[in-house]
Amino acid sequence: MKTRLPFRIISYAALAIGALFILGPLYLALSIALRTRDETTSNFFAPPTRLYLDNFSTVINKANFWGMLQNSAFITIISLLFMLIAIPMVSYAISRNMNKLYFKWVYTIILMGIFVPFQAIMLPIYRHMGNLELLNQTGLIMMYVTLSFSQGLFLGVGFLKNIPLELDQASKIDGCGVWYTFSRIIYPLMLPIIATILILNSLWIWNDFQLPLIMLNRHPDFWTLPLFIYNFKTETSFDYNLAFAAFSLSMAPIAILYVFTQKYIIGGLTEGSIK
């Protein structure tokens, strides 16, 4: 079926208007960030007349932007490393032992975590982690890994149902132990679902505001980008050119990543939510 010309024109027009609504605010943010305060009041929509980068350099130099970027990257990467080992491992152990009481219980109890919204445990986490002296980056990473198990196990065990048991048996007959079978045969086969888990969790951790707010807000040295941008805005609420420079900078890393990996990001997020 080919779409008729008038339909095509109407469709494109509607899509273009939609795109304007999405890109407009982003364009405005960048355009305000590139101006001085006096220039802003005249006309927001006109492209900046000159390349004024002082707002950006102020954010980078005075507000320790690089430090926050490093914190965010460090926390995201280390959490993901732990997740990408622990989730496939426990998923495999459970999926091959569903008939045993212990594994069944572990599965059920961890899955029930899906129904517990973060806000229900927000205050006790603060208290508990404070008692354990873990209101720091180590504690934050442990929390991220822990909170990823419910969804991770759901996706991992679901995926492993489609990997035939004959593979395990064949490898057992060949004399491979459980760990060898897992690490050399099963893990590589799990890569598609591991990629989904990676995408879902990296975006979540990178963008998360609530856990860092609860756990790190009193230690500016530990701040992640979302926490930095929140505190930066509070401190400089009157200089909005500067604020928009900070917004633009904090959106830049993920925007660059998005340009190159959007296919995988869209796919991973969709798959993670449909299942």
């Binding site: 622990a86 961890i110 445990i121």
Partner: peptide, 29 residues
Amino acid sequence: LKPGTVFFMMTLPAVLLYCLFFLAPVFIG
């Protein structure tokens, strides 16, 4: 090691973290 033991050990990181950092806060709350 018996396969059962290996499987059990593979669940340990998740089980320990989950008890310590998820179930504990739920009960503390």
